[in-house]
Simulated scan of single mutants.
Amino acid sequence: MTTIDRAVLTRQVYFHDPLAPPASLVAPSVFVAVRWHHGTLLLVRRCDSGTWELPGGRVDVGETAVEAAVRETAEETGVRIEVTGLAGLFTDPGHVVRAVDGEVRQQFALLFRARALGGLPHGDQHETSEAAWVPEAEIAGLPMSPPVRLWVAQALAIGEPPLLT
Rank of each mutant, 00 (worst) to 15 (best):
L156K: 06
E72C: 09
V70C: 12
L43E: 07
V83L: 11
E127F: 05
S49M: 07
A68S: 15
G85E: 10
R46E: 15
L110K: 02
V30Q: 03
D92T: 06
H37K: 05
E82D: 14
V8P: 00
M144W: 03
M144V: 09
D92W: 02
T51P: 01
A68Q: 05
V34L: 10
P22T: 13
L117Y: 03
G57Q: 12
L164G: 00
A114H: 02
A137G: 11
R35W: 08
A157H: 06
F112Q: 06
G78I: 03
P28Q: 06
I139L: 14
D101P: 14
V134Q: 01
A137K: 13
W133H: 03
D92R: 05
V8E: 13
E130G: 03
L42I: 04
D60G: 04
H95D: 13
L111E: 07
T91K: 03
E127A: 09
L164A: 08
E103M: 09
G94D: 12
I4W: 02
V79S: 13
T64I: 04
D60N: 02
E75W: 05
V59P: 00
V30I: 09
L110H: 13
E127G: 08
A140K: 02
Q125G: 06
V13N: 07
V44D: 02
V32G: 00
P161M: 04
L19G: 13
L142S: 01
L9R: 15
G56E: 08
F15A: 12
R149A: 09
L156Q: 08
E103H: 01
G141N: 12
E53H: 08
V148S: 12
W36H: 06
P93I: 11
L9E: 14
E75V: 15
T77Q: 08
T77M: 10
S129T: 15
T73L: 09
G39S: 12
P21M: 09
E127Q: 10
T51D: 14
E138W: 08
A23K: 01
I158P: 01
S29G: 14
G39T: 11
W133L: 10
F90Y: 14
L111P: 00
I158C: 01
T51G: 05
G141A: 15
L41I: 14
